[in-house]
Design a protein around this nucleic acid. Structure first.
Length: 281
DNA sequence: AGCACA
């Protein structure tokens, strides 16, 4: 690999967040993660394989919401810290290198009340979609036949987010149908940013306590970053970050997408190209 | 999902 990049700024790990003590109404009791950004052909087994080796993992469920092709998942851990640790190590990971789809992981709003039944599988599927096309759903207990804890060499690297890492999809083994679907997905041109490329980025899903300063700290490690403007809309802050070049903005977006700030309480940043460039002045 | 400044 040509590029070695620190997945996470060591700045955050070496320093305690000084100014704000956590609000008492925090989510310290949450041990379930909410996972979005999944491709619509994701399999429950893939979700399970994604989480099964994280310390403290209990169980997970995959939900095909009836809404479009949206698929979400919930992963439950035995305690809050384990959930947080898994969140940190997997958030922002490229789930499908073919499409560039990236995992967004946040703490769930409420713990999953589904308890893992002894003797049944470690994961569960809920399909709210109009099931007319196929029976491509699995109920549980499909683990590829082995419950070994040994990690294959292609396992997703902890904390990886920018380099090339093993494909999550291929980890579970090659089903022919799966490969066919995957091969079909490479026709999209604009998978990123949700809009036209722009040298200004729009940043959302910031925590209520996010400061301009900490955001600036993160952004200023990327070449071409010029300035930042924050604005609170309806209580939640959003930000606009300007770069010298579209490609530099793109790089920063790809790298920071889904990552957590110290102030984050609801998952990682959502970054898109801004609809219009920041006024130059 | 949420896009301002002139």
């Amino acid at each position: 690999m040509a590029q070695f990049h620190q997945p996470y700024d060591p700045y955050y790990q070496l320093q305690q967040p000084p100014p704000q003590p956590p609000p008492p109404s925090d989510r310290n009791g949450i041990n379930t993660l909410f996972v979005s950004g999944l491709p619509d052909d994701v399999k429950p087994r893939e979700i399970h394989n994604l989480f099964r080796r994280r310390p403290g993992f209990d169980s997970c469920q995959l939900k095909y919401t009836g809404r479009g092709n949206q698929v979400v998942a919930f992963a439950t851990f035995f305690n809050h810290q384990s959930a947080i640790a898994a969140l940190h190590s997997l958030n922002g990971v490229k789930f499908d290198p073919q499409t560039g789809s990236t995992l967004h992981i946040e703490l769930a709003r409420t713990n999953s009340r589904r308890k893992r039944k002894p003797g049944s599988g470690a994961y569960v599927v809920i399909d709210k979609r109009t099931k007319m096309a196929s029976n491509a759903q699995e109920t549980s207990s499909d683990d590829g036949g082995s419950d070994s804890d040994e990690a294959p060499a292609t396992e997703i690297a902890a904390s990886a987010n920018q380099g090339d890492l093993g494909s999550v999809k291929s980890e579970a083994g090659g089903e022919p149908e799966n490969a066919a679907v995957t091969a079909n997905r490479q026709s999209d041109k604009t998978v990123e940013g949700g809009g036209n490329p722009c040298s200004t980025l729009f940043i959302a899903n910031l925590g209520p306590n996010c400061t301009e300063d900490e955001l600036k700290q993160s952004l200023s490690q990327y070449p071409g970053f010029t300035m930042l403007k924050m604005r609170a809309k309806g209580g939640m802050p959003v930000a606009f970050a300007d770069f010298e070049e579209v490609e530099l903005a793109k790089k920063a977006m790809e790298d920071l997408q889904g990552t957590l700030l110290p102030s984050s309480d609801r998952g990682g940043m959502h970054i898109e190209y801004a609809r219009s460039k920041m006024r130059k002045s």
